[in-house]
Amino acid sequence: MSEGAKLLLIVFTMVFTENYVLVQFVAICPFLGVSQKFDSCVGMSGAVIFVMTLASAATYLIYTYVMVPLGLAYLSTIIFILVIAALVQFVEIVLKKYMPPLYKALGIYLPLITTNCAVLAVTLLNISDEYNLLESCVDGFAAGVGFGLALILFCGVRRSLERANPPKAFQGLPITLIAAALTSMTFMGFTGIADKLFA
C-alpha cells in the first residue's frame, strides 16, 4: 500500500470505523458534558484537533528518541500524561502571547483537555500501531476530527431530545445515555468498510 493510501486509510478509520467516542468509547466525559450547545461543540472540537495533532508529534519524538534508547517503553503512560499536560500549558502561553484570536476561540476548552483520555489514547495507540512521525500526526488530526464529528452530531441529537418528553425515570442523563448508545450503533455500521475500500 502506498504512503498516501495509508494516510487516507488512517483518516477514514479514525473518523468513521474506529471513531474514538462512538466506537472505542473514550472521551465520553466531554462528549456528554460539552454537547449541549453547538458553539461549545465547535470550540471543543477545534481545541481537541489542535492538541491531538501536537501531542502525537511530541510524544512520538520523545518515545523514539528518549524512551526506546533507554529501554523505558513501559513508562509510556505516565510520561505521556506529563508531556501532554506540559505541552498544553505551553501552547496556551504561546497562543495567549502570539495568537490572541485563536486563544480566545479555543477559550476554556484548551486547558480542559489537558488530561483528556482521548488525547492520551491517541498517543498510546500511535505507538502500538507503529506509525511513523507523519502517520502519527495524521492519526492525531483524524482522531480529533472524528471526536468533533461525534460531538456535533450528538449535539443535534440532544437538541431533539430537549423537545422530547421521555418518562420521568428517563429524564436527563439516562435518556441522553440511551441516545448516545443509539448514535454509537449507527457508527458500528461502518465496521469492515475501510478494509474493502482501501484493499
Partner: peptide, 27 residues
C-alpha cells in the same frame, strides 16, 4: 533508578520550559 531519574528529568525539563515561557511570554 533509571526510570525514576528519566521521569524526574522529563518533569524538570517540562517545568523549566513552562517557567521560562511564562516569564518571557507574559501578557
Amino acid at each position: 533508578m533509571t526510570a525514576v531519574l528519566v521521569l524526574c528529568i522529563i518533569g524538570f525539563v517540562c517545568a523549566l520550559l513552562l517557567v521560562i515561557a511564562s516569564k518571557y511570554m507574559k501578557v
